[in-house]
Nucleic acid binder design. Structure first.
Lengths: 126, 126
DNA sequence: CAGTATCCTATTAGATACTG
DNA sequence: CAGTATCTAATAGGATACTG
């Protein structure tokens, strides 16, 4: 997962852009890092609630490869690793905000309940 | 495909928003409809190059369900069906444009070649 | 603590044949 | 023409056990 065996189709900037935030976990990770600034691996996993290590580690590798997230490793015992958004990662936040507002506008009535139950992107409204 | 058997997780507006444009084909369909305004089923399939009917029909159903696309059926023989963006569908175009520009800015040097090979979202720059 | 390695399931996408 | 029905392949995501 996150390591396709076959070469992907040629993508345009739009599809590349959608992809770096796509999938089940990447937008959530970007949101919590945007809000909390810096998080250790274990804190990030706790924020994600129910993610497994295999999946979190794979998502983080993707985000690092796409230069959305930076990883800092401190050579201490026990080990400490911190994750934060890169410049590129921070620069996508206004776009996520506009998606949030656009999408929210079309869900006011029918899915209000759904929208209230996930708090990850709440800070995007503030 | 596009008809999950299990209930999806609760999503926030951000994730809902990303989803209506996500997957391999939906952003492409939105782009060609934005550019060409109205297209028949067969014209749409031709624009997509290499999509199969099963996949195109499923993607269109999703887009219609999400109220991004409107379908008009003319009861003629042979049958004629036209697809066009809804108000909601049109209102997402500026956002796709901002994703395009953001993503393109970070790919100027390294992936220039990749970016030149898909023309679907070219009009978003104009 | 911060991950890997392995195996498995669910979902998405594609190929092909057929139809009102 | 505009799809549907089936079957298969590829990929994303998850469970569990283990490690420097």
């Amino acid at each position: 997962m996150y390591q396709p065996k076959m070469e992907k189709d040629i993508r345009c900037p739009l599809e590349c852009g959608l992809e770096v935030c796509g999938g089940k976990w990447k937008s959530r990770i970007i949101c919590v890092l945007a809000e909390k600034s810096t998080l250790r691996y274990s804190a990030l996993r706790k924020e994600m609630t129910n993610i497994t290590d295999a999946v979190l580690a794979a998502a983080l590798k993707e985000l690092i490869k796409d230069e959305m997230v930076e990883r800092t490793q401190y050579n201490e015992i026990p080990p400490r690793v911190e994750y934060r958004l890169s410049g590129k990662g921070n620069s996508v936040i206004p776009i996520l905000q506009s998606i949030c507002k656009w999408s929210g506008a079309y869900h006011r009535e029918d899915h209000a309940n759904t929208l209230l139950q996930c708090q990850k992107c709440d800070f995007l409204y503030r």
